[in-house]
Amino acid sequence: MDEPGNTHGVTGPFRPVPALPKSVVGLWAPVSVGTALWFGALVVLLVTGADSTWTWTALAGGVLGCVGFGIIAWQTAASRRGSRGAQRDL
Protein backbone atom coordinates (compact mmCIF):
# COMPACT_ATOMS: atom_id res chain seq x y z
CA MET A 1 0.00 0.00 0.00
CA ASP A 2 1.78 3.13 -1.24
CA GLU A 3 1.50 6.54 0.36
CA PRO A 4 0.11 9.31 -1.84
CA GLY A 5 2.79 11.53 -3.31
CA ASN A 6 5.42 8.82 -3.68
CA THR A 7 7.84 9.36 -6.52
CA HIS A 8 6.97 7.39 -9.65
CA GLY A 9 8.62 4.00 -9.56
CA VAL A 10 9.28 3.97 -5.81
CA THR A 11 7.25 1.41 -3.90
CA GLY A 12 6.69 0.97 -0.23
CA PRO A 13 6.64 3.54 2.55
CA PHE A 14 10.12 4.90 1.79
CA ARG A 15 10.69 7.79 -0.59
CA PRO A 16 14.02 9.27 -1.68
CA VAL A 17 15.19 12.01 0.64
CA PRO A 18 15.42 15.37 -1.13
CA ALA A 19 18.77 17.14 -1.15
CA LEU A 20 19.28 19.81 1.49
CA PRO A 21 19.51 23.42 0.29
CA LYS A 22 22.98 24.96 -0.04
CA SER A 23 22.17 27.48 2.71
CA VAL A 24 21.88 24.62 5.20
CA VAL A 25 24.77 22.49 3.93
CA GLY A 26 27.22 25.28 3.12
CA LEU A 27 30.14 25.31 5.53
CA TRP A 28 32.21 28.20 4.23
CA ALA A 29 30.13 30.97 5.82
CA PRO A 30 30.04 29.71 9.44
CA VAL A 31 33.69 28.68 9.41
CA SER A 32 34.67 32.06 7.95
CA VAL A 33 32.69 33.97 10.56
CA GLY A 34 33.99 31.85 13.43
CA THR A 35 37.60 32.14 12.30
CA ALA A 36 37.28 35.90 11.84
CA LEU A 37 35.79 36.23 15.33
CA TRP A 38 38.65 34.25 16.88
CA PHE A 39 41.28 36.33 15.09
CA GLY A 40 39.38 39.50 16.01
CA ALA A 41 39.40 38.42 19.65
CA LEU A 42 43.12 37.73 19.36
CA VAL A 43 43.78 41.25 18.10
CA VAL A 44 41.69 42.76 20.91
CA LEU A 45 43.50 40.65 23.51
CA LEU A 46 46.91 41.60 22.13
CA VAL A 47 46.02 45.31 22.13
CA THR A 48 44.64 45.25 25.68
CA GLY A 49 47.48 43.11 27.03
CA ALA A 50 45.16 40.47 28.47
CA ASP A 51 46.18 37.28 30.24
CA SER A 52 48.24 34.94 28.11
CA THR A 53 45.78 32.05 28.58
CA TRP A 54 43.04 33.95 26.74
CA THR A 55 45.48 35.06 24.06
CA TRP A 56 46.61 31.51 23.38
CA THR A 57 42.99 30.32 23.39
CA ALA A 58 42.04 32.91 20.74
CA LEU A 59 45.08 31.98 18.66
CA ALA A 60 44.19 28.28 18.88
CA GLY A 61 40.60 29.04 17.81
CA GLY A 62 41.83 30.96 14.76
CA VAL A 63 44.29 28.25 13.79
CA LEU A 64 41.64 25.55 14.16
CA GLY A 65 39.37 27.63 11.93
CA CYS A 66 42.11 27.61 9.29
CA VAL A 67 42.37 23.83 9.68
CA GLY A 68 38.60 23.73 9.13
CA PHE A 69 39.06 25.57 5.81
CA GLY A 70 41.50 22.86 4.75
CA ILE A 71 39.10 20.08 5.72
CA ILE A 72 36.23 21.72 3.83
CA ALA A 73 38.39 22.10 0.73
CA TRP A 74 39.57 18.49 1.04
CA GLN A 75 36.00 17.14 1.36
CA THR A 76 34.77 19.30 -1.52
CA ALA A 77 37.56 18.05 -3.77
CA ALA A 78 36.87 14.43 -2.78
CA SER A 79 33.16 14.90 -3.48
CA ARG A 80 33.88 16.33 -6.92
CA ARG A 81 36.19 13.39 -7.68
CA GLY A 82 33.40 11.00 -6.71
CA SER A 83 35.29 9.43 -3.82
CA ARG A 84 33.17 6.88 -1.94
CA GLY A 85 33.80 8.25 1.55
CA ALA A 86 33.29 11.89 0.69
CA GLN A 87 30.35 13.95 1.89
CA ARG A 88 28.06 14.83 -0.97
CA ASP A 89 26.69 18.21 -2.06
CA LEU A 90 29.21 20.41 -0.26
Rank of each mutant, 00 (worst) to 15 (best):
S52W: 10
G26D: 15
A78P: 01
L27P: 02
G82C: 08
G85S: 12
G49P: 10
V63H: 02
G68W: 00
T7S: 14
P4Q: 13
L37F: 02
V24D: 06
P13G: 14
G9Q: 12
L27A: 14
V47G: 00
M1W: 14
A29M: 08
L59C: 11
S83N: 08
D51N: 15
A19R: 12
R84Q: 14
T55P: 04
G62M: 06
W28Q: 08
S52C: 01
W74A: 08
L46Y: 05
L37S: 09
F14N: 15
P4G: 11
G70A: 15
S79L: 02
A29F: 04
G49F: 06
F39V: 10
A41G: 11
P16Q: 04
R80N: 13
T53E: 00
L42C: 00
H8T: 13
G62C: 07
F69Y: 14
L37T: 09
A19F: 00
V43F: 13
T35E: 07
G40P: 05
V17C: 10
D51Y: 08
T76S: 07
V24N: 04
G70D: 05
P4L: 14
S52T: 13
Q87P: 10
G68Y: 00
G49W: 00
V63W: 01
V63K: 01
P16I: 08
E3G: 09
L45T: 05
A86F: 04
S79E: 12
V31M: 09
R88D: 13
A41M: 09
G62D: 04
L90H: 07
V43L: 12
Q75T: 04
N6L: 08
V47C: 08
F14H: 12
P21V: 02
G26P: 03
E3L: 15
W38Q: 04
R80A: 08
L42E: 00
S83C: 11
F69T: 02
L46P: 01
G40H: 01
T48H: 06
L59P: 01
W28M: 15
T76C: 11
G26K: 02
P18A: 11
I71H: 10
P13K: 11
A60D: 06
P30D: 03
V10P: 07
P30T: 02
A50R: 05
S23K: 03
G65I: 05
T57Q: 01
T76N: 13
A86E: 09
R84N: 06
S32W: 03
P18C: 05
L64V: 04
S52E: 12
Q87G: 12
T48M: 02
V10N: 12
T7G: 03
G70P: 08
T57H: 09
Q87D: 15
L59E: 03
V17F: 02
W54L: 10
L90T: 10
V67W: 11
G62R: 03
P21Q: 05
V44T: 03
T55M: 11
P18F: 08
T55K: 07
W38Y: 07
F14C: 07
R88H: 11
A78I: 04
G85C: 11
P16Y: 09
M1L: 14
L37C: 03
A36H: 01
W56V: 08
L64D: 04
C66G: 14
M1S: 09
A36G: 11
G82D: 11
G68R: 00
G65A: 06
T7K: 13
F69I: 13
G9P: 09
T48R: 07
D51H: 10
G49Y: 01
W56R: 09
G9E: 14
G5Y: 13
G68T: 07
G5M: 14
G68H: 01
